[in-house]
Simulated assay, not measured.
Amino acid sequence: MRPTRLLALTVEETTDRYADLIRAKTTTGQLSPGTAEVYIRDVLTFSALAGPHRVLDELDGEDIDSVLLAFARKPDARRRTPTTAPQSAASQARFRRSLSAFFRHALLSGWVQLDPMPAATVRARQRGDLRTERRALTREQAGGLITAARSLAAAPPDTGRRDDQRTELRDALTVVMLATLGPRVSELVGADLEHFFTNDGIRYWRVLGKGGRTRDLPLPPPVAALLDAYLAEGRPLLDRGREPRALLLSWRGRRLARGDVQPAIDRVLSRVAPADRRAVTPHGLRHTTATHLLAAATDLDAVRRVLGHSDLSTLTRYRDALPGELEAAMRIHPLLPP
């Protein structure tokens, strides 16, 4: 039931109240911390773009269109170097969904008389299930990144820094896990030491995924070896007792934050040969895992379980076309002799 009177609250007041509600839902288990963080980030971005001191009920469809366009042009804050590229269609669609959820709550709470979202006309154009800009790295680009990470892990320690500031093994492990296992960045930074175990000689990672779901991922031997090296030589230098459970720690001994992951990728990327170097985000590495597993004809359900999805149809959004894959498929056609 809607409230009987309208509350003339500013955009800033309403988004702050909504963010508090999202945090409360995280505490009660209704939302995962990673999902809540995205919702909160989106409504705070909306507040900044719409004007924090405007009355929320005064916003109409044209105002929402202006906000959506401003967000589309907003540079990707995850990248170190400035970029003029617009936000991806997927990011724009997610932002719009976050605003729709916010205004549904605003309507029920008496902050607005009418929901302005149906009057908004700006929508991101998506080309089928493929993005305008490829997210997945090619095999050569991904191979160069993984090779750079492994060489970084094997390099002699940098004597120019204190022992507790050496993060080479941690950065290498971060990149290799993202590129080969495809976890969400929230799953990686949320990993604890107790989530890794051995069964019949195989190392596993018990991933705590969205919606409270868990999955046990077997680690490929090179990944398991890098994990062991980090635990034996890298993490003890970082562990100052503040986060005894967390797998990945900052040099100050705190659990690695989501925002720390992109700089780690960039540090490894700087060691890749220019011909194979291409900027990539943590989510782009998740796309890379899915794309190459699917291109290698890995069982669809196995790929779904690796990524932690409940529905096979979701895999279509993680599929990029790869150069030469159609030619390769025709060369090994199952109905024709070699």
Score class of each variant (00 low, 15 high):
215 R>S: 14
215 R>E: 10
215 R>C: 04
217 L>R: 03
218 P>N: 05
218 P>D: 06
219 L>W: 00
219 L>C: 04
220 P>Q: 01
222 P>H: 08
223 V>D: 12
223 V>E: 13
224 A>V: 10
225 A>Q: 15
225 A>V: 15
226 L>R: 12
226 L>Q: 13
227 L>S: 08
227 L>T: 12
227 L>D: 08
228 D>M: 01
229 A>Q: 15
230 Y>Q: 05
230 Y>I: 07
230 Y>P: 07
230 Y>W: 01
231 L>D: 07
232 A>R: 07
233 E>W: 00
233 E>P: 02
233 E>L: 05
234 G>C: 03
234 G>H: 02
234 G>K: 01
234 G>W: 03
236 P>L: 00
236 P>F: 00
237 L>W: 00
238 L>S: 03
238 L>F: 02
238 L>M: 04
239 D>R: 09
239 D>L: 08
240 R>C: 13
240 R>V: 15
241 G>H: 00
242 R>Y: 01
242 R>M: 06
243 E>K: 14
244 P>I: 11
245 R>A: 14
245 R>M: 07
246 A>P: 13
246 A>T: 15
246 A>G: 14
246 A>V: 14
246 A>S: 14
248 L>P: 05
248 L>Y: 02
250 S>D: 03
250 S>P: 03
251 W>C: 14
251 W>T: 15
251 W>Q: 14
252 R>H: 07
253 G>K: 04
255 R>E: 10
256 L>G: 12
257 A>M: 04
257 A>E: 06
257 A>T: 11
258 R>Y: 01
259 G>I: 06
259 G>N: 08
259 G>K: 05
261 V>S: 02
262 Q>A: 11
262 Q>P: 08
263 P>N: 03
263 P>L: 03
264 A>T: 13
264 A>D: 07
265 I>P: 01
266 D>R: 07
266 D>A: 11
266 D>Y: 04
266 D>K: 04
267 R>A: 11
267 R>E: 10
267 R>P: 11
267 R>Q: 10
267 R>H: 10
268 V>S: 04
268 V>N: 02
269 L>W: 01
269 L>P: 09
269 L>V: 13
272 V>H: 04
272 V>W: 01
272 V>D: 08
273 A>Q: 12
273 A>H: 13
274 P>K: 05
274 P>Y: 00
274 P>W: 01
275 A>D: 10
275 A>H: 07
276 D>Y: 00
276 D>I: 00
277 R>H: 04
278 R>C: 14
278 R>K: 15
278 R>E: 14
279 A>Q: 08
279 A>M: 03
279 A>V: 09
280 V>Q: 13
280 V>H: 11
281 T>L: 08
281 T>K: 07
282 P>Y: 02
282 P>S: 06
284 G>C: 06
285 L>Y: 05
